[in-house]
Measured scan of single mutants.
Amino acid sequence: SEEELEEFAKEVLRRGITIIVNGIRITEVEIFVKVLREILEKR
């Protein structure tokens, strides 16, 4: 749901943790923004 997305976004921003994806360091915020864009483009 959109509320869950908002909560996830807030949690990500609070933690600001960097994770490893395919050997490249990407912040969770960047991943969230990318996923959010993909979701919005599909609408």
Rank of each mutant, 00 (worst) to 15 (best):
V33A: 02
T18P: 13
I20H: 07
V35Q: 02
K42Y: 09
R15S: 13
I20N: 02
S1Q: 07
I17Y: 15
G16T: 04
L40V: 03
V12G: 01
L40S: 02
E4G: 08
V33F: 06
F8T: 02
E4F: 14
I24D: 04
N22W: 09
R15I: 05
K10T: 06
V12T: 06
I31R: 06
E38R: 04
E28L: 10
V29K: 03
I24Y: 07
V29I: 10
R14K: 13
L13Q: 02
R37C: 01
L36D: 02
I26T: 04
L40G: 01
E41R: 05
E4Y: 13
V35S: 03
K34I: 06
R37Q: 09
V35G: 01
R15W: 13
E2T: 14
G16A: 10
K42W: 07
E4N: 10
L13S: 02
I20D: 02
E30T: 09
E4H: 08
V12N: 01
R37S: 04
V35D: 00
R15P: 06
I17H: 12
I31C: 07
A9V: 09
V21Y: 15
F32V: 05
R14L: 09
V21Q: 03
L13W: 09
I17K: 06
E6K: 14
R37V: 07
S1E: 07
V35Y: 13
R14A: 11
E41C: 09
V33L: 13
I20E: 08
R25C: 09
E38F: 10
E38Q: 09
E4W: 15
K34F: 04
I19P: 02
R25L: 15
I19S: 00
E30N: 09
I26M: 04
G16I: 12
R37Y: 04
I17R: 03
V35W: 14
I24R: 04
R25A: 11
L13C: 00
N22A: 09
T27E: 07
T27M: 06
I20Y: 11
G23D: 03
S1D: 07
S1W: 15
E4S: 11
L40K: 05
L40H: 03
E6Q: 13
E2M: 15
G16N: 08
E7G: 04
A9E: 02
E2K: 12
R43C: 15
V33S: 04
F32D: 00
N22Y: 05
E7Q: 12
E41V: 06
V12P: 00
A9P: 02
A9W: 14
E28S: 15
F8A: 02
E4P: 05
I39F: 14
I26F: 03
I24A: 03
N22D: 08
G23K: 01
I24W: 10
V29F: 12
V12K: 02
E41L: 11
R14Q: 08
A9S: 05
L40C: 10
T27Q: 06
L5S: 02
E3M: 12
R43A: 12
E38M: 07
K34D: 03
I20T: 11
E30V: 10
T27L: 10
I39A: 04
E28Y: 06
E30S: 14
V33R: 06
E6H: 14
L13M: 06
T18M: 12
E11Q: 08
R43G: 09
E41M: 07
E7T: 09
E38T: 07
E4V: 12
R37F: 09
R43M: 15
V21M: 09
L36S: 00
N22K: 07
F32N: 00
A9R: 03
N22H: 06
E4L: 13
E2Q: 13
K34E: 05
E30H: 14
R14T: 05
R43K: 12
